[in-house]
Simulated scan of single mutants.
Amino acid sequence: MERMAAGEAAEALKSSVAALVVHVGRATSYSGPIGADPLREQADAFLDGLAAIARTEAQLAALKVLLARGFEQATHAMAPPVTSPQEHTAQEMVVVAEVACVLTVSERAASALLAQSRELTTTLPLTLAALQDGSISWQHARVMVDETTGLDPAGASALEGHFLNPDPAAMCAAGELVPSRFRAKARTWRERHHPVSIEIRHTRSILDRRVE
């Protein structure tokens, strides 16, 4: 199922990129009606192109999430059953190393991507859907993952619903806020509705601190 979804998304993105290339070509060689303002028309076309690219980048990020999660699941399915914590850690390290190598990023960045992909595909369906349709950016999705850490499923769903609810009366759409502003609003909402989870996350962070 996920493999089919990833394949369909890849084909859609190919079409989007091709359309953007055509759009840029038209913007750089405007030949509109006589009497129109060609510079204004070109400027608007360039802005439209940037907006389309932002949506495409979000959709690419969603595809990366699906692919990373799919690779992790496939690798675990192929591996023999683990019999010790050390074997489990070794398996995780292999997955992280493979993803880091193919994306040419640090293992720390690859590990973060895998963890974020896990959350988005299992507990944050509204966030993943918004990323797939380009209504939020990858930065927004990362904020949502961060701010739902430590919440139970009902709490995470409530936070998602508050900021990703399509109801215009809510006036809190995440995609309309810059990521830093969205983080501040999400944290304020979380502290107001789930203050205990903040304390738990803080305690866990202290316990997890270590030097490697």
Rank of each mutant, 00 (worst) to 15 (best):
K14W: 07
K14C: 12
L131F: 01
G175F: 02
D48E: 10
D37K: 01
A100F: 10
W189H: 07
G49S: 11
P81S: 14
A156P: 01
A51L: 06
P81M: 14
A100W: 06
L114V: 15
S16Q: 11
Q59H: 06
R69E: 15
A18R: 06
F46Y: 13
A68D: 11
L207S: 11
P33N: 13
S29A: 15
E87K: 04
L131A: 02
A77D: 15
E2T: 13
A52K: 05
R210T: 08
A43V: 09
V65N: 12
T148L: 03
L50F: 09
A58W: 02
W138T: 04
V95T: 13
S135L: 02
E212W: 00
V145F: 02
V65S: 14
G49Y: 00
G155F: 04
A52M: 09
T122G: 12
L131R: 02
A18C: 12
Q116I: 08
V143F: 00
V24G: 11
L207E: 12
L13M: 11
K185W: 05
A100H: 09
H76V: 15
A158I: 00
L177Y: 08
E11L: 14
E57T: 10
A79E: 11
H194I: 05
A141Y: 02
A51Q: 08
A74P: 05
L63T: 07
W138H: 07
L164N: 03
P38G: 06
R118T: 15
T121R: 06
S111E: 14
A170L: 07
D44S: 11
R204M: 08
G175K: 01
R210N: 08
M78P: 01
Q42L: 07
M1C: 09
R204I: 09
A79I: 07
R55G: 05
E191Q: 14
A62T: 00
E176Q: 09
T188V: 12
V105Y: 09
T148I: 03
H162S: 03
L47P: 04
Q132G: 10
T123V: 13
Y30L: 09
Q42D: 02
A170G: 10
A109C: 15
L114M: 13
V17M: 13
V82W: 01
P125M: 06
T56S: 13
L67T: 12
S180C: 09
L207W: 01
R181E: 12
D167T: 00
P85M: 07
A97S: 15
R118M: 15
D146V: 06
G25A: 12
A54T: 05
G134N: 05
L103A: 13
G32A: 10
T75S: 14
A130M: 00
K14F: 07
V95F: 05
V65I: 15
P38I: 04
V22D: 14
V99F: 07
E87Y: 04
A115W: 07
F182K: 02
A90D: 05
S111C: 14
R181L: 13
V94T: 12
A186R: 02
A52V: 05
S106I: 08
Y30M: 06
R118F: 15
V211D: 11
L131Q: 01
T123G: 08
S197Q: 04
S31E: 08
A12P: 04
L128F: 02
E199S: 08
S180D: 12
E8S: 14
R118D: 15
E147Q: 04
G70Q: 10
A54D: 12
A68C: 11
L151Y: 03
D208K: 00
